[in-house]
Simulated assay, not measured.
Amino acid sequence: MDLVSLIGTILAFVVIVLGTILKGSSVEALWNPAAFVIVFAGTLAALLVQNQGKVLRQALKMLRMIYRPPRHQPADLISRIVGWSEISRRQGLLGLESQIDAEADPFIGKGLQLLVDGGEPEAIRGVLEVDLETREAIDLAGAKVYEMAGIYSPTLGIIGAVMGLMAVMQNLADPSKLGHGIAAAFVATIYGVALANLFMLPMAARLKGLIGKQSQMREILIEGLVAIAQGDNPRQIEAKLQGYLS
């Protein structure tokens, strides 16, 4: 569990509620069913129009990455690659066959299998780079769903505010309803702007950062496996891959 992201999410809610109270309003004033439907359901409708179902499913699947991010430890991966190169020098590439089943990451398993099968270095690079680019494109499409939600929601908040003001204008003859009506109209704006700037856009940026780290890990793996296939010395491989740590 990433406590920093969890604390940030909780703090976002606290800021809205506490800010409302400090401004002299009440927490109840933040709740408006009509504004909720316009902003949240409207944003969802826009995302459904824009994206295919598989992209939305990928976005939902990636949501847990924010609070349970995958571990990115390039130093450990480099150490493992150097270990594989030492095994290959002592036992040959077939000596790595026992390492394949022990790998939980299918990308690593595929790379080791290509190595054990005696693939040419550039062939190994080509196959794994296609996988890397495909995976990265899928993940970035999922992250973009949150980014687009952050773009749509403020506009829908304005739409909700305008619709609320239209309702107020229809009740100008009753002054007792004006204050409550205007306050309710601007709740939609709060929903839209808060959803975008406290949740959707930060989540999209967070996911893009995690995707970048995951891609870097896979680049390290590709370079390491290609170096092993070329028969490079383990110390040379380690020195080359250390550049990623800087």
Rank of each mutant, 00 (worst) to 15 (best):
L3S: 13
G8E: 05
G8R: 07
T9C: 05
A12S: 15
T20I: 02
T20A: 04
V27N: 03
V27P: 02
W31P: 03
N32A: 09
A34R: 11
A34M: 09
A34L: 08
I38S: 10
F40M: 10
A41C: 13
A41Y: 04
L44R: 05
L44N: 09
A45I: 12
N51W: 04
G53A: 11
R64W: 10
R64Q: 09
M65C: 03
M65F: 15
R68G: 06
P70E: 10
P70T: 10
I78C: 06
I81V: 14
V82H: 10
V82K: 13
S85F: 12
S85I: 05
I87M: 10
Q91K: 12
Q91G: 01
L93V: 10
D101V: 08
F107Y: 15
I108N: 08
K110G: 14
K110D: 11
G111W: 00
G111A: 04
G119L: 06
G119R: 08
I124N: 05
I124D: 09
R125V: 02
E129N: 14
V130H: 10
E133N: 14
E136Y: 03
D139R: 11
L140V: 05
A141L: 03
G142H: 07
G142I: 02
A143Y: 10
A143L: 05
K144L: 07
G150T: 02
G150R: 04
S153Y: 09
S153I: 06
P154C: 05
T155Y: 07
I158D: 01
I159Q: 06
I159R: 02
M163Q: 14
L165Q: 09
A167N: 14
A173E: 12
P175I: 02
G179A: 14
H180A: 13
H180T: 09
H180L: 06
G181K: 00
A183M: 06
A188V: 08
T189K: 03
I190V: 15
I190P: 01
Y191Q: 03
G192F: 13
G192M: 03
A194W: 08
L198F: 15
P202E: 01
M203F: 15
G209E: 00
L210M: 09
I211E: 06
Q216F: 02
Q216C: 08
R218C: 04
E219I: 07
I220R: 04
A227I: 00
I228R: 08
A229L: 03
Q230R: 12
G231A: 02
D232A: 10
D232M: 11
P234C: 06
P234I: 07
Q236S: 11
A239H: 10
Y244L: 02
